[in-house]
């Protein structure tokens, strides 16, 4: 019972880039709508009733993005009303709606992406590309919390020693700069120990291998193949010219041909795949639990 986030990180990353890439390149209304639909569903099914604030934030963003365009752009044939001597047109409003849909959809997807892609998974992807870069990144990631923790410690110590003599800003800023330089020295000095520890364990004696914690299983193969097939179909349809669409001067090209329709169906399936995967897992669990 593999859930979406249990798939191989490379497969997950390819899926995300396929969907967001298609949405951003085509910006065809139906595709944008499907992206938003998929994005919201994936986020909702993964987080349940939590993160209501995120939904609220995206809703507000959506409204603002939609309304911003007709206030700035005055192209289009159908004038709805005139505001401050400027016409507000239906076409501009629809254009705003479309780009808001696309952007919000992509942002939803990225939100899920950051939830799923932990630093470890990102490192896995880089290690596929280059074990050395991945190694350096891993060390760098380790240093971030160390650095800030040490900074806090030095700051506390120095405060209790009266580094900041008075409650004034200049003093605070110079104090912070000294703390920063002290933590840098600390990092360099203690970096020698890390270097020793690496040498002691044979770093640089020959070719490295990289232990990978993420297997590439049958589900991964299937998921990847479907992702490629669906994306390919959409790409073909786009290349075929099915998604040429204009808002200005008036909305045109809303009726796609057969290839276009096939592409849209494929994109729908592509977007919905993770949601299906998650739902399947939920249903199976229910079933298994009912047997206990």
């Amino acid at each position: 019972m593999v859930r979406f986030h249990d798939l191989n990180p490379a497969v997950i990353a390819i899926w995300f880039f396929a969907v967001t890439g298609t949405a951003m390149f085509c910006s065809y209304p139906v595709i944008c709508f499907l992206t938003l639909l998929g994005g919201v569903l994936l986020f909702a099914i993964r987080n349940g009733k939590k993160h209501l604030k995120t939904h609220l934030f995206f809703l507000i963003l959506y409204v603002i993005l939609t309304l911003a365009n007709p206030l700035i752009s005055h192209n289009g044939k159908t004038v709805l009303f005139v505001m401050n001597d400027n016409p507000v047109t239906l076409e501009a409003l629809l254009y705003g709606l479309n780009s808001a849909t696309m952007l919000t959809g992509v942002l939803y997807l990225f939100r899920s992406f950051t939830q799923i892609m932990t630093s470890e998974k990102l490192l896995y992807i880089t290690s596929v590309l280059s074990p050395k870069i991945s190694m350096v990144l891993s060390m760098a990631i380790r240093y971030v919390p160390l650095f800030s923790r040490q900074g806090q410690k030095v700051s506390d110590t120095q405060k209790a020693m009266g580094l900041y003599t008075d409650d004034n800003i200049v003093d605070d800023i110079t104090g912070r700069m000294r703390i920063f330089s002290s933590v840098s020295t600390w990092a360099l000095e203690n970096g020698i120990v890390t270097a020793d520890s690496m040498a002691a364990r044979g770093y640089g004696t020959g070719r490295r291998t990289a232990l990978k914690r993420f297997p590439f299983g049958r589900t991964d193969v299937v998921f990847l193949a479907l992702t490629i097939a669906f994306t390919g179909t959409v790409a073909l349809a786009a290349a075929h010219g099915s998604y040429i669409f204009d808002f200005y001067p008036s909305v045109s090209g809303i009726h796609p041909d057969l290839v276009g329709k096939a592409g849209l169906a494929a994109f729908f399936l592509l977007v919905i795949m993770p949601v299906i995967k998650e739902t399947e897992a939920i249903i199976r669990w229910r079933y298994l639990e009912s047997k206990i």
Binding site: S119, E120, L123, P131, M135, S138, M139, I141, R142, V193, T194, D196, S197, M198, R201, G202, Y203, G204, T205, G206, R208, T209, A210, L211, R213
Partner: peptide, 17 residues
């Protein structure tokens, strides 16, 4: 002395080298 960010990676580090 710890080189990497994850416990499992730290354990594997020497053998990887």
């Amino acid at each position: 002395q710890i080189v990497t960010d994850k416990v499992w990676h730290e354990l594997a580090f020497g053998l990887e080298n």
